[in-house]
Computed example of a mutant assay.
Amino acid sequence: MNYSADFLPPIKLIALDAETASLSGRTGRTRPPTDIRWVRVLEFLRSNNLAPNSRKLYERELKRFLGWTELHYYELRPRHLGQYKEYLRDELRTDAGKPLSKSSINAGIAALKSFFKWMCYTYPDIIATNPILGIKLEKVPLPPAQSLTPEQMERVWSALELLGETKQRDTALVHILIHGLRAGEVVQLNVGSFDGKLLFLPDTKTNEPRLVPLCQESRQVVAEYLQLREQQGEVLNSLSPLMISHHASYKGERLSYHGIYFAVEKIGELAVIVDLHPHSFRHTYATDLLLLGVDSFHARKLTGHKSEKAFRRYTLRSEQEAAIAAYYRAIGETQGV
């Protein structure tokens, strides 16, 4: 039989009805073609140790970028990324109709920087040169540390006494949070992470293991919380979650990221502290370390800050306090009198 081009039947294009055609033959609906670019994004998100909020932000920003351009990664050039930054700055609007803040623009650019750095390392055959290297972040003032005052911390401790079933757990939770842990790090803690004095964090945001020493009162509270669970019949081993949920649907399971936020929000309501969140305690811990005179390098080791620049917001207050104290010493007055 002759299979030359002259004898082939004409090609017919058949439009698929989205309501009736099916790739599986059962659902009655067509599936949209998979964007191979998004497959790379999903791989990036899976391969990085991102906290839930960071993952959500990266996913949102990368999806926004892919919605803006139809170019494949190997087609992107620095000018395209520069045009995208202009789009974020000049065209995109919030739900309220306002331009994006500089911080929001930076969040979008930072997500792309992280993604393209990963792409260049993982798929050098697709992207040989990072197209976003020359794109600068917007200059924004360094935000002040959102530390809690001693009076606010007193209200937190008082609020814990008003709790019912979750009192022991939430007290232990706050004692851990006041040592600078991120909510995502607390979620990962097991009973074996606590040796009676230190917390061992094998998987942190900086991808480096971290040891966090607890003060005497805090390690006693954590130990008493674990003893209470054993007295209630729970069999604990090294892989048991350190913090457990009291929610009816997840009782006894590992306390989730959102569970930690909900618990802290409830404490904030009782303590009458607006917008209290887990990171409030981390800010307080970092600031207090510096006010106590701990070297900033050692303080960053304790908090798990990889960048000295990111830690700068905490050193500002300690430097200011030191300057005020130096002034009063110089003029022979006692500070606060």
Results as ranks from 00 to 15, higher is better:
M1W: 07
A5M: 10
D6C: 10
P32D: 05
I36H: 11
R37S: 06
L42N: 10
E43V: 04
L45A: 07
Y58H: 14
R60N: 12
K63R: 14
T69R: 08
R77F: 07
R79N: 09
G82D: 14
Y87S: 12
R89W: 08
R93M: 06
S101A: 14
I105V: 15
S114E: 04
F115R: 08
I132T: 01
K136A: 12
E138V: 02
P141I: 06
P144L: 15
Q152Y: 02
E154S: 13
E154V: 12
A159P: 00
L163F: 05
T166L: 03
K167Q: 12
L173Q: 06
L173E: 06
V174I: 15
R182C: 07
G184A: 10
L198S: 02
D203C: 08
L214E: 09
R219P: 02
R219Q: 14
V221R: 06
V222W: 04
L226S: 05
G233N: 10
V235W: 07
I244N: 00
L255K: 01
F262C: 05
V264L: 01
I267P: 01
R282I: 11
L290V: 08
V294F: 06
S296T: 09
E308G: 11
T315C: 05
L316V: 15
Q335P: 00
V337F: 12
